[in-house]
Each structure stands twice: as C-alpha cells, then as structure tokens.
C-alpha cells in the first residue's frame, strides 16, 4: 500500500511538472518571449547568484564554526601536531583565495548581467595582470611546498635507534602484531613458513625471533619513538591511526614502515575528551575486500614505565609453542631456551 502511495505521489508530481511546462511554453509563445535571448529570467538568474552565494558562505561558516570539535579529531603524536599546523595554515591561505574568487565570480555574474543599453568592455589581454597572477600563486605555493617538504623529510627519516620495533601484518580481514621482545628486534620471516600456528612466518634460524611475542592490541609507550614494520600477507592494506596522523600501505612482498612518537596516553585522552570510553583505533584505508570496513585494532598508549611493566609480562611466542624448538638450529637451541623463557 505504501508503495502505491509513493507511486501515486511521483505520478502526480510529474503530471504537475508537465502541466507547468506546457503552460509556460504556451505563455512564451503568446508573449513572443521565446524568440528573445534575454528575458526576465536573466535578472532572476543573476539575483539567484547572490542568493546562492550568501546561503553557501553562510551555511559553510556556520557549520565550520559550530561543529569544529566534531570534525577536527584531537591529535596525539608529535609529527601529527606539525602536519596539523601545516593543514590549518594551508586552510587559511586557500580559504581566503577560495572566498575571494568565489565571491568575485558570483558578484561579477550579478553586477554585469545583460543590459541592452550597455556594451561589454573589449578587454582581450593584459600581460602585466597575467604575470602577477602567475607569479603570486607560484611564490605562495613555493612557500607551502617547502614547509611541507621539510615536514615530510623529517617524518620519513630513518627511525631513531632506540625505537620500539613492532611488526604489524595485514591480512583479510584483520591485523596481527609482533613485538621485538627483550632485544627489541623483530626477527626474520619467510612467507613460505606461514601456517595456522606460525602466522607471521617467523624463521627460527634467526635468533632475534626467540623472544618475539604477539599482542592482541597495539600497546605503545608515550614519548618513545615507535617503529611500525608493516607487512601484508595477501593483498594491499593500509595502516591508519587517525589520532596519530599515521598512514602507510601494507604491501605484500615489500615491507614498509612508519615511525612516530605518541604524546598522549589513552588515560590522558579519556580526560581530555571527557569520554571515559575513549580508545585509540587502527583502521585499514586501502580497499582489501568485503571486510575492508571491519579491520580494527585497538591502540593503547601507556606511560613508559607502565609499558615496560606490560612488556615484561608478555611471554615469548616460542615459549607458548615449544614444538617449534625443532626448527631452531642446533647451535642456537640453548640460546633459544634461555631467551624465549622456556627454561624459566
């Protein structure tokens, strides 16, 4: 029944529109306005330009102001503060250009609407003007590029030696994590060693693997550089931590990385946001299949001492799966037993 009413409504609207169309056409023919290029509609359209401009800028200004906190996510990393600063600087510069050019467009359209008594100004070129508006944008853009480049260069530089090494591996449709352990080194892997148990394909001929451990959540310390070593098992994924301004694709066959320093713990953020349920999240931003929208990892930022404590509590993967001792070369077996904590 509901469908019938909708169909009826649509039919009526179309019928009314058609009627209006026919009537205006007939009126046009009778009045002879149909043969003129410029009719009264010209002034209506010109006025609508101004109406549109006022509404457009009004709504934009109102929403940008009133909902600022909704669309401006809090930032919780050191480089993020820098890129946010660049973002807002660019916003101011381009915002001004945006406003001026759009206002000129609508105002000129209104002001110079057709008038039979007037003639347009024959003004084909002015090289001076062209030079000015080639040069000025070029200079402003150069400034923006250079500040952007300096920031980019810093963000993408070598990770500091003391960085916490954490491997994050994307696969359809979840992330898994591996920590470097006590030696803070994520061990070698080979994708051919991956199976249901050894999900990261750890290669136990590398001693750095003995103390590596997994974690369900991405736990990181505040104020300490964290190096994410990013891999993908099957298709492209992309690590995205919105509050940290971190994003880097995970590429099968080509490990990538991103290092950053978180500067607010989860607990601090809960207070700042006034939201006791606040949690940092990690999402996927490269289309990877049907479950793309559900690849979530919780990120927990702890004070450095809390983090050290948490890390000390974690048990090495090898000690949880001692049967993999058989893959450890004989000369390293003893070392493996000690560093993985199996012997404790």
């Amino acid at each position: 029944m509901f469908g019938f009413y909708i169909a009826l409504a649509v039919f009526l609207v179309v019928a009314i529109l058609l009627l209006i169309f026919r009537i205006t056409r007939l009126v046009d023919i009778v009045k002879g306005t149909g043969d003129k290029i410029v009719t009264g509609s010209n002034n209506v359209n010109a006025a609508l330009m101004i109406v549109f401009m006022v509404l457009f800028f009004g709504l934009m200004a109102w929403y940008s102001w009133a909902y600022f906190d909704d669309y401006d996510p809090p930032v919780a990393s050191e480089h993020g503060e820098l890129t946010d600063k660049l973002f807002w600087r660019t916003m101011w510069i381009t915002g001004i250009v945006f406003a001026i050019t759009n206002i000129l467009l609508f105002v000129f359209s209104y002001k110079y609407k057709y008038d039979e008594k007037r003639r347009a100004l024959f003004y084909p070129h002015n090289n001076k003007l062209e030079y000015i508006w080639t040069g000025v944008p070029a200079i402003v853009l150069t400034w923006l590029v250079i500040s952007g480049w300096m920031a980019w260069d810093g963000i993408m530089s070598e990770a500091p030696e003391e960085s916490e090494q954490i491997e994050i591996v994307g696969q359809q449709f979840f992330w898994s994590l591996r920590y470097g352990g006590a030696d803070n080194k994520v061990g070698d892997y080979d994708y051919r060693l991956i199976n249901a148990v050894n999900t990261h394909g750890m290669d136990f001929s590398d001693r750095a693997n003995f103390d590596d451990f997994n974690s369900n959540n991405l736990v990181i310390p505040k104020g300490v550089p964290v190096l994410l070593k990013i891999r993908a098992k099957d298709v492209l994924h992309s690590v995205f931590i919105p509050h940290m301004r971190v994003k880097m694709d995970a590429v099968p066959g080509m490990p990538t990385q991103f290092w950053f320093i978180a500067n607010k713990t989860t607990a601090e953020m809960k207070i700042e946001e006034g939201n006791p349920d606040f949690e940092y999240e990690l999402a996927c931003t490269e289309i990877c299949g049907g479950g793309h929208f559900s690849m979530k990892k919780k990120v927990i930022v702890l004070e450095p001492d809390e983090y050290a404590e948490w890390k000390a509590d974690q048990k090495a993967w090898l000690s949880n799966n001692p049967e993999y001792m058989s893959q450890v070369p004989d000369n390293l077996k003893e070392l493996a037993l000690v560093t993985s904590g199996i012997n404790e």
Partner: peptide
C-alpha cells in the same frame, strides 16, 4: 576577468 564588465546572458 572575462566576466568582469561583461554583458552577461544567462
């Protein structure tokens, strides 16, 4: 600038 001081037919 083309619109400026034109005689605009909409």
């Amino acid at each position: 600038t083309t619109l400026w001081k034109g005689n605009i037919v909409f």
